[in-house]
Amino acid sequence: MSLSTASAPVSGADRIDLVRAKALNIRRSAFTMVHEAQLGHPGGDFSAADILATLYFGVMRYDPDEPRHADRDRFIMSKGHCTGAFYSVLAQAGFFPEAQLKTYMQPLSKLNGHPNRNYLPGIETNTGPLGHGLPVAVGIAIAGKLTAKDYRTFVLTGDGELQEGSNWEAAMAAGHRKLNRLTVIVDRNRLQQGDRTEATNALDPLDDKWRAFGFHVEMIDGHDHAALLDVLGADPSGRDKPLCVIANTIKGKGVSFMEDNVSWHHGVPTDEQFAQAIKELI
């Protein structure tokens, strides 16, 4: 079977509507999982939801029936704690039944707190400890060059995660090797587990850092589906550098009492909060 972006070809406004609907589904699904498990990282699930929906329903080439197809585009969830959103998008994309989401973090579930490639299809590498996704993505991109394949490699990192030095080892290698089919997306919600990134160990000027490491940088609104589709969907063939998309996002995006509130990094909702959130997520 040939690889294609999920769902029938659509364009323009229809594509944006599709991505918007999928992103909403991701948020509702992820928050339901977190509510039922009383565990998870919903703030980061919500900041990443639009990015994930765009990749899986507007940009990436894959076949859920052949998840390890040699020519597939690869996605690595380096912020591996945000499995509420990641499992939800994988289920919606057809990698496993959505009913399986109900087992999230239950004893012996395949839906571990952090993703495991040997448990579920669609997962490229086991993440969880931060700063692991980009080095693996760089290796995948090098393999693509060695084998003259045209697949793309995407990696989504948190912003606090960029305090891990391994990212910069990998960034240096990606820039040096001009891995133009590699795209790093930074979920720039400006909050890490305990505080604001800039109060903890400042990242700004973040765009300059990536440029200095040899990346082409785009800064966009990470909740703007049109902008995400435009930047992530652009053909990388003409570029001679890897791409870094700094997606400015809001942690907890979509639910009034969660937005930009550090306590929702791994906060879990009461029944009342859950009901309120689901009302807002329409």
Binding site: V138, G139, I140, A173
Partner: peptide, 21 residues
């Protein structure tokens, strides 16, 4: 040769394996 960067070196190894090497 990834240079003096062992964390990246091992991660790159895992990525190369993902790409069929």
């Amino acid at each position: 040769n990834v240079g003096i960067a062992e964390q990246n070196m091992v991660g790159v190894g895992a990525g190369l394996a993902n790409g069929g090497r």
